[in-house]
Every structure is written in structure tokens, then in C-alpha cells.
């Protein structure tokens, strides 16, 4: 305890705080970049997976296999796979890029199932009504199904991203200068482990908590019937 109190002023000095802030932003940046790109690609994957017809069978199989396989691999293994694969293709790829790609690959597999569940929650009769009006499959998905599926998709998707902020700690294993990596570094410099990792823990909390609040806000908003959502109550004088 004495050691912590004695080290604290030096630990919370300008350069260290800058370092921590930068690595926190890196953690947040790669999580958001990976999850957002992954989320976008997951939509494409789900759309391809729903392609009707016999000719699209191999396509559907590839999509299903991808999701089922990646959901059953530990994230750390995905990171190493991406690291070694990318390094053989382009040896000078940055570690940040590799981390984002790994997060992305993982996020696609997980959010694809969330998205599929959301789309399937919309009654088939809505799709039928759209078909009868000659809307294409893409138009039906974008204009009718997806807008109704958001309330089912958004809360678990954000929960996934929030929990993933923590899991990105694993990419410190390949040397990305994110929060946990910096923590180990500072610990090696002789700072108390409790002080360092206590601070790191607090940083992770600071990163995740606002996102969780955003998720809760969106969940509530999306659960409100549309008719009531837009109009704010106008106070009668």
C-alpha cells in the first residue's frame, strides 16, 4: 500500500497518462473499426446466405460453414492465424491492421447470427406483401425487413461490441500497443501491479460503460412504437 501511494504521483504523470490515453484510444479504435466493418460484412453474409435457388447452394454452404467454424475457434487462435497469414502475404502489414482484421473476422461470425435472428423475427407475411408488389429481395430487405428488425438486432450487437472491448486485450499477445500491453510494460518498469492494472481496469470500464448506456438508450427508443417515437409531447399552454 505504501508502495502504491509512493508511486502514485510518478505513475499518474503526464507522459504515462498520455501513453495510457493513447493505448485506450487504440483499444477503442480497433474494437469499433473491427466491429463496424464486421457488422457491415455480416449483413452481406446473411444476404448471401438467404439467396434462394439450387445454384446458390454452394454459396449458402460457404456462409454457414464460415459462421459455424469461426464461432468455435478461440479468439486468440484467430489472432495468430491472421498474424501468420497476413505476414506471409504482406510482411510489412501493421499490427493494428492485423488486429482489426482478426476482430473483424470474429465479429462477422457472431453478428451474422444476431442479424439473421433479427431478420427472421419479421413476419413472413411482410415479405409476401412486398413480393406481391414486385419489390426485389434487396428492396424488401432494406425497406421492409431491416427497419423492423433493428429493435431485435441492435441491443445484442452493441452488447457484443461492449464485451469485445475486453476481449481485445488478447491482441496484446502479438504486440499491439493497446491497454493491456501498456499495462504489462508499465508493470515491467517497476510500478506496482495493483496500481497499474487497477488503473487499466478502470480504463476498460470507462471505455465500455458509455457504450452500454448508448445500447440501453437505443433499446428503449427502438421499443417505442413508431407513432409515438417522433412526436415529442407538445405542452398545451
Amino acid at each position: 500500500m505504501e508502495r502504491i501511494l509512493e508511486q502514485a504521483p510518478r505513475f499518474f504523470s503526464g507522459p504515462n497518462l498520455t501513453l495510457l490515453f493513447e493505448s485506450a484510444m487504440l483499444t477503442l479504435g480497433m474494437t469499433l473499426a473491427g466491429c463496424l466493418i464486421g457488422f457491415g460484412l455480416a449483413f452481406v453474409l446473411v444476404f448471401l446466405r438467404q439467396t434462394p435457388g439450387l445454384w446458390a447452394l454452394p454459396l449458402r454452404l460457404v456462409c454457414i460453414t464460415y459462421v459455424e467454424v469461426f464461432r468455435r475457434i478461440p479468439f486468440i487462435v484467430v489472432i495468430y492465424l491472421v498474424l501468420f497469414f497476413i505476414q506471409t502475404v504482406t510482411p510489412d502489414a501493421s499490427l493494428f491492421t492485423i488486429a482489426v482484421i482478426a476482430i473483424c473476422l470474429y465479429a462477422v461470425a457472431y453478428t451474422a447470427d444476431i442479424i439473421r435472428g433479427g431478420l427472421e423475427s419479421v413476419p413472413a407475411t411482410q415479405v409476401e406483401a412486398a413480393q406481391a408488389m414486385n419489390l426485389s429481395r434487396l428492396q424488401t430487405n432494406l425497406r421492409i425487413v431491416l427497419p423492423q428488425a433493428w429493435p431485435v438486432i441492435v441491443p445484442p450487437a452493441i452488447a457484443f461490441a461492449v464485451s469485445f472491448i475486453k476481449d481485445t486485450a488478447l491482441v496484446s499477445q502479438v504486440g499491439v500497443f493497446e491497454l493491456t500491453f501498456r499495462g504489462k510494460e508499465l508493470n515491467n518498469q517497476g510500478y506496482s501491479g495493483i496500481l497499474v492494472f487497477g488503473t487499466i481496469a478502470f480504463c476498460y470500464f470507462l471505455l465500455s460503460f458509455p457504450l452500454s448506456l448508448l445500447g440501453q438508450h437505443l433499446e428503449k427508443r427502438l421499443a417505442t412504437p413508431r407513432g409515438e417515437r417522433r412526436t415529442r409531447k407538445i405542452r398545451q399552454p
Partner: peptide
């Protein structure tokens, strides 16, 4: 054109949008 037993109005659209979607977009 067909009208279904369960109406099947597009839940995410207003009455006007329901009526004008296909005439405008299709």
C-alpha cells in the same frame, strides 16, 4: 394486386408511405 387476410401493412411505414412505395419505387 392482392389484399391479404392479415392486412400486412408495412409496420415501419406511415399510411401514405404504404400507399406510395410501390407506385414510386417499382
Amino acid at each position: 394486386a392482392i389484399v391479404f387476410q392479415q392486412y400486412n401493412l408495412f409496420q415501419n411505414m406511415t399510411v401514405m408511405q404504404n400507399l406510395t412505395l410501390a407506385p414510386l419505387k417499382i
